[in-house]
C-alpha cells in the first residue's frame, strides 16, 4: 500500500498527521487522516460524495480550519501559522476549483494575475500595475493552455473548459510547490474532462509539481494518475496504484455495486458515473 521508497524525509512534500475535522453540527468529516505525498507526485483522491474529499483539500490550505492534527508542508506545520504566515504559505499551494471559481466579471488576464496577489502589494494589485515579469508569465501560461487570444475577454464569456484552463493558469502563476485540485471535471463534458485532466497532469510533470486531485470519476483517475487514495466516511480505505483498484476495493470505498463496467470503461469515451 504505502509507497515506501518515498518515505525519505527530504523528498516529502506534504504530510498529514492525524488530521481531524469535526463540523459544528457534530459531523466528523475527517477522522485522524495520515497521508504522505512525495515531491512531484500526483495523487487522486476518490470516494463517494460526503466522504470528506473536499474538506481534506480545504483543510490543507485552511480554507476550512482543521479541528486537530498537523499539516506539514515541507517542514512547516500549517495549522500553527498566524494570519500573515498562512498567507505566505498559501502562495506555495495553487488551488483549482470545481465550478472554476473565476471572478466572473473580471477579464481572463485579471483572473490569471490574481494568482500573484500574495506577492504584490494592495495598491499595485488594486491599480492593476503588476510587475512585467508577472505579466509575461501570465502570457506564457495563457499561451500554454491555448487561450492567449482571449486575454482581454471577460471570464463569463468563456466556455466551461476554457474557464477551467484559466483556473489552472491562476493556480500555476503562483509558482506553487503543490496543487490542490477539487473536482476539476465535475462541471465538464467527458471529452473536455479528459483534456483538462491531461493538461493538469502534464503541467505537473513539466514543473515537477505534487498534486492532490479530488475526483469522483474513477475511470478518469485510473487513466491519468499513478497513485489513488480512496476515502470513505473520513477514513482512508485504499492507497495504491490504479491497477490495484479491484472491484472488491471499489466496493469497500463506494459500497455494493457492479464495478466491472467501470474498470473496463477506462478506454471508453463515455463518462462513467462512479458515485452511487
Amino acid at each position: 500500500m504505502g509507497l515506501s521508497h518515498c518515505r525519505v524525509r527530504g523528498l516529502l512534500m506534504l504530510r498529514l498527521q492525524k488530521l481531524t475535522k469535526t463540523y459544528k453540527t457534530g459531523d466528523q468529516a475527517l477522522k485522524a487522516i495520515d497521508l504522505e505525498v512525495p515531491k512531484g507526485q500526483v495523487l487522486a483522491l476518490i470516494g463517494p460524495s460526503g466522504a470528506g474529499k473536499s474538506t481534506m483539500i480545504r483543510c490543507i490550505n485552511r480554507l476550512v480550519e482543521p479541528t486537530s492534527g498537523a499539516v506539514m508542508l515541507d517542514d512547516t506545520d500549517l495549522t500553527k501559522l498566524g494570519p500573515g504566515a498562512l498567507r505566505r504559505a498559501r502562495r506555495e499551494m495553487g488551488m483549482i476549483f470545481q465550478e472554476y471559481a473565476l471572478v466572473e466579471r473580471l477579464t481572463v488576464m485579471e483572473n490569471v494575475l490574481s494568482g500573484r496577489l500574495g506577492y504584490v502589494g494592495f495598491w499595485r494589485s488594486f491599480l492593476r500595475r503588476y510587475p512585467q515579469s508577472d505579466v509575461d508569465e501570465a502570457f506564457r501560461l495563457l499561451d500554454r493552455v491555448g487561450l492567449l487570444h482571449m486575454a482581454d475577454k471577460r471570464a463569463d464569456e468563456l466556455s466551461g473548459g476554457q474557464r477551467q484552463r484559466v483556473g489552472i493558469c491562476r493556480a500555476l502563476i503562483q509558482n506553487p510547490k503543490l496543487l490542490l485540485v477539487d473536482e476539476p471535471t465535475a462541471s465538464l463534458d467527458p471529452k473536455t474532462s479528459r483534456q483538462i485532466m491531461r493538461l493538469i497532469t502534464e503541467l505537473c510533470r513539466e514543473r515537477g509539481l505534487a498534486a492532490i486531485i479530488n475526483i469522483h470519476d474513477v475511470a478518469l483517475a485510473q487513466m491519468f494518475v499513478p497513485r489513488i487514495v480512496g476515502l470513505r466516511f473520513g477514513e482512508i480505505v485504499f492507497d495504491g496504484v490504479p491497477v490495484a483498484l479491484t472491484p472488491e476495493k471499489l466496493t469497500e470505498i463506494y459500497g455494493e455495486e457492479d464495478w466491472e463496467a467501470t474498470i473496463e470503461a477506462v478506454d471508453d469515451d463515455e463518462d462513467v458515473e462512479a458515485a452511487q
Binding site: 477579464t107 502570457f139 506564457r140 492567449l148 487570444h149
Partner: peptide, 18 residues
C-alpha cells in the same frame, strides 16, 4: 495562438481594458 504571437506579447505592458 502561435508562438510568434506570444513573442510579440512578452515584454509588452498590460493594462486592463477600459
Amino acid at each position: 495562438m502561435s508562438h510568434r504571437e506570444l513573442d510579440d506579447m512578452l515584454g509588452r505592458k498590460w493594462r486592463k481594458p477600459h
